[in-house]
Design a protein around this nucleic acid. Structure first.
Lengths: 203, 203
DNA sequence: CAGTCAAATGAACGTATGGTCAGTCTAGGC
DNA sequence: GCCTAGACTGACCATACGTTCATTTGACTG
């Protein structure tokens, strides 16, 4: 890699990190190119040397953040675990990682981002990253189904619902509708996802 | 009610309905006062005779929409049903009502709205309407717990999660990640919420 | 029919913000 | 020590959008 490429990559990373910090602080609406430039300690024009439009900048920042998080979930997986325990750990890991990125994801979780315009190229890219993550979770669920550890449910559907429950429980905190400690929320999601609200315990 | 008040109420309703149509078509971001005025077939200035700011207009439109929907859910409830069947119908009703307001809620469901600024007065009002709805759902769940029909779970938590699952399954459709018919989605949510993914059927 | 007045209008204004570009700075080659 | 390429800057531009207000409209009154 040439020196120019190193510098370029450094700048890009620097700007993207600044963008994520601004998004965390001001939300999607309040994220302006001026603010990102100030946060990154570069001139506004500099940003346009590395990104064509604000849209590209913002979506790239989101995508990178998503990618890091999904990679972290993937890394925490241990396929040698018993299926149910594997699922439990998967849920807890997702919860932990989402919670620790709460600042950045606030805008995302509370609802303001993901204004995915399905038509736009950048929107499609965002969606594809998330879909990839869902595929992984679904594959873990499918594995559990194959082992008879859980009932035969559509794994893609269940994976998506699990994601909604996870972001939902964080959203609930952000809306100040919950005050329970984080850990108990995570366990509650595990419980609900695994056993539902049915009366008869299914252990 | 005086004639002036009738006219005023008519105008307000007209403008709010136009606002909801615009929100459905262009999303929260793309909803401008100009567009609402055009849709309502009034001049831009007229809108400011009935609403102080754009923010008030938009949030009022959302709140009214929410209120209508929650009222509809409430009306469909039949407390004399057996608890489990009551919950099942509650879920199906919510799903049906959400789905039929999909256009208006698209922006909401897909994530772009609810940029609830917890500090703002209007944001608080929006949240309170939703919280009221959650209270109702939670009370139905509490009733089921009292009858021993479901296990003793935090009803507020479960109610919120159920809401997330419902909007989530619609979001999944909007993101084109699902192609199954609407009804089967609704039943799948009922299944998952009631029984989780556990292997042993808990009927 | 003239007068009155509130409702409605839409041109105009201020501001915020995405995007541009002529000019400055600096590292590296000669 | 000068020169050049290109990274960087930030003042500037264009536009979109929320908000205002002087003017017009039209329904009602006497």
């Amino acid at each position: 890699m040439t020196k120019e490429e190193v510098i370029k990559e450094f700048r890009v990373r620097e700007i993207l990190e600044a963008a994520r910090r601004v998004m965390a602080r001001y939300g999607m609406q309040g994220t302006t190119v001026d603010r990102v430039a100030e946060e990154a300690k570069v001139a506004k024009g500099t940003i346009y040397l590395y990104f064509d439009t604000k849209d590209e900048l913002v979506h790239t920042a989101v995508i990178e953040g998503l990618r890091e998080m999904t990679a972290e979930v993937l890394a925490s997986d241990d396929p040698s675990m018993p299926p149910l325990e594997r699922i439990r750990r998967l849920i807890l890991a997702q919860f932990r990682i989402l919670a620790s990125n709460q600042d950045f994801l606030k805008t995302f979780i509370i609802g303001n981002s993901l204004d995915i315009e399905l038509e736009s190229e950048t929107g499609q890219r965002e969606l594809r990253v998330y879909a990839g993550h869902l595929d992984f979770v679904a594959s873990v669920l499918q594995d559990a189904i194959d082992h008879g550890a859980i009932r035969p449910i559509d794994p893609q559907f269940a994976a998506f619902m699990l994601g909604e429950m996870l972001t939902g429980s964080l959203r609930r905190r952000l809306l100040k509708l919950a005050s329970s400690p984080l850990e108990s929320d995570a366990e509650a999601v595990v419980e609900l996802f695994l056993k539902g609200i049915a009366a008869i315990p299914c252990d």
